[in-house]
Design a protein around this nucleic acid. Sequence first.
DNA 1: CGGATCTTTGAGCGGGGTCAAATTAGGTGG
DNA 2: CCACCTAATTTGACCCCGCTCAAAGATCCG
Lengths: 240, 240
Amino acid sequence: MQTSLASHLPESARAALMPFEALPELDIQQLQHHMPVTQRKVKAGQYLYRAGQPFHALYLVHAGFLKTSELSEDGREQVTGFRMRGDLMGVETIGLKAHTCDAVALEDSVIWELPYPPVLDASLHIPELQLRLSSALAEEIRRDRSWMLTIGTLPAEQRVAAFLLDIASRLARLGFSARHFILRMGRADIASFLALKHETVTRALSHLEDIGYISVQRREVKLLDIPMLRSHAGMRAMLA
Amino acid sequence: MQTSLASHLPESARAALMPFEALPELDIQQLQHHMPVTQRKVKAGQYLYRAGQPFHALYLVHAGFLKTSELSEDGREQVTGFRMRGDLMGVETIGLKAHTCDAVALEDSVIWELPYPPVLDASLHIPELQLRLSSALAEEIRRDRSWMLTIGTLPAEQRVAAFLLDIASRLARLGFSARHFILRMGRADIASFLALKHETVTRALSHLEDIGYISVQRREVKLLDIPMLRSHAGMRAMLA
DNA sequence: CGGATCTTTGAGCGGGGTCAAATTAGGTGG
DNA sequence: CCACCTAATTTGACCCCGCTCAAAGATCCG
């Protein structure tokens, strides 16, 4: 099965290879001089890393789609985020010996592996890299806090609207269509991320379709009225 | 009015001046060689910083108690955390020109102000500092994710139990009693942080008292059965 | 074609929210 | 020091959003 996002979005596929936001391609080539930056392929369903495994690298998503999930000792689990091209993964483990969460590929993915601590050492010599790294960490904190706000203050349907706008805007930054895309994750993952149940997500999507804001068919989503969606979602996720 | 925590906890007050976890005193003295580290006093109710204000320093809490809250364009607000001695504040703004959230003192507080970007520059020369900074950022991400899990998967009463245990364990690390303490924030702040309503927090506290796990009187809390509280809360906040 | 998984929809329930009122502190100025 | 005012906390009654349980499609895969 063809799992690349581009295959579903021929219209904008050509724009897919844009520079990274978090760490531009430039840096990767520059990093090669300081450490061995290798590529790693992860098939759909496989783990990039799991809680408890030794931490020895940061990961930069080159292609594909993944989710991260937090787990508690007593078995509870929650999806804490979805990652796509340009996103840096593993930063939450900095300062520890082993990972504290799981990262699973939701479709076949390609990942750049940046050895740690070498990246940190390198950032001592490359101020630009240090800035980008710390900015990436801080950005992560802001993202999390922003979702806390969404989850803490918005009802189910509006959380789902915010979620769709977030995915859309991130795809747009990568050159894909913000209006028409394929969700990489199931209802249960969306629900977990938004602190809801999967039936509630389904109902929210159905209702958003009923009122004409979107069109959904399984994982294929079309955003029909982005302005209304945005006001619905309290403007959290912005589409310039 | 006497606002210091110690005044309410005479038993362990003498142990209050322990080294910082995030950035030991050591570093502050060392930092003085690289930049002007100044002290700032913030009275109860005053802002340490507000969303929109220019970002020019990180803050290390020396004494007192503060909360941070995230706000949305449409007026929603949520408490994202409570900070006490040893906690580093403002890191979420790294990489930006202006703050994106509010920080308010809940009691008279004393803060060390670490000029930014000077701290970042200094960390290029002090690998130890760089490590501590990035670890602090990562720690922040883990803390947030951990609360996301709690809020996303636990019912009201258990969230409140987790909250009490978290406060208790943090006070314990500072040398205060984990069994008996005074909450610095109102029910509404706790509720906002836990994505609940203040009446629900009150009811949860009342019920935890009914079943004998705690004793509450307004803001004075005694933890009577920590093991039961822990299992109740899915073990999130640990008291070693 | 058949089984597993995912999604959708319905019916009914309940935890937590809403609204309202009583009670208690705490702060202020006389 | 006390009376008053304001703000915080508590409790009750009721209701509704989102959860639970259940079953019926739909899609994918072997």
